[in-house]
Design a protein around this nucleic acid. Structure first.
Lengths: 78, 78
DNA sequence: TGATACTTACCGCTTGGGCGGTAAAAACGT
DNA sequence: ACGTTTTTACCGCCCAAGCGGTAAGTATCA
């Protein structure tokens, strides 16, 4: 663990802070331990659903922001 | 295009709003057209790096939020 | 309406991401 | 120190995500 992506560091921090081993987290999240290992090591090519399960387990929310998001959300309530 | 994920709808909306065809977006973002097609159709198993390139091209930012994020960010400036 | 240009949908193929199993390394207590 | 338990790192296999090519569908002209 040295040189890595922001996501990886965030996952690592939250996992440690939750007192979970990779194995434990992988069981709870329902993903392989390798996925967590890879993500924490900065792999950016992981699958979105896998990452999402991990984030959900660690109580991390993924949000999308853009200048058009208000407009988009308004269009959804039509 | 009917029944799909939030991400897919957001991407679709921003692409249309940018006046880009899937082909054009795929060229600019440097990904295959199939990836964009799949994402807009609600595929949640796409790769993170692929999605990120698409989001970046559409000027959409991905943010991670959690109760511990402040604490995390503070720890990074150490 | 027929031709042209553009967009979307689908089909095989290839490559690499996710998986479990296992070895290596740390962190314990005694 | 030593053995035990927990955590981390790595390996090889399998399947599906991504790719380009192409067919099908739309739009927009004269």
């Amino acid at each position: 663990m040295n040189e890595l992506s922001t996501v990886g560091r965030i996952v690592h921090y939250h996992r440690k802070r939750s007192g979970l081993s990779r194995e434990a987290l992988s069981r709870i999240a329902g993903v392989g331990k390798t996925a967590i290992f890879d993500i924490e090591h900065g792999k950016t090519t992981c699958r979105l659903d896998i990452l999402n399960r991990i984030l959900a387990t660690l109580n991390i929310r993924m949000r999308l922001d853009s200048p058009l998001m208000n407009e988009y959300e308004a269009s959804q309530n039509a």
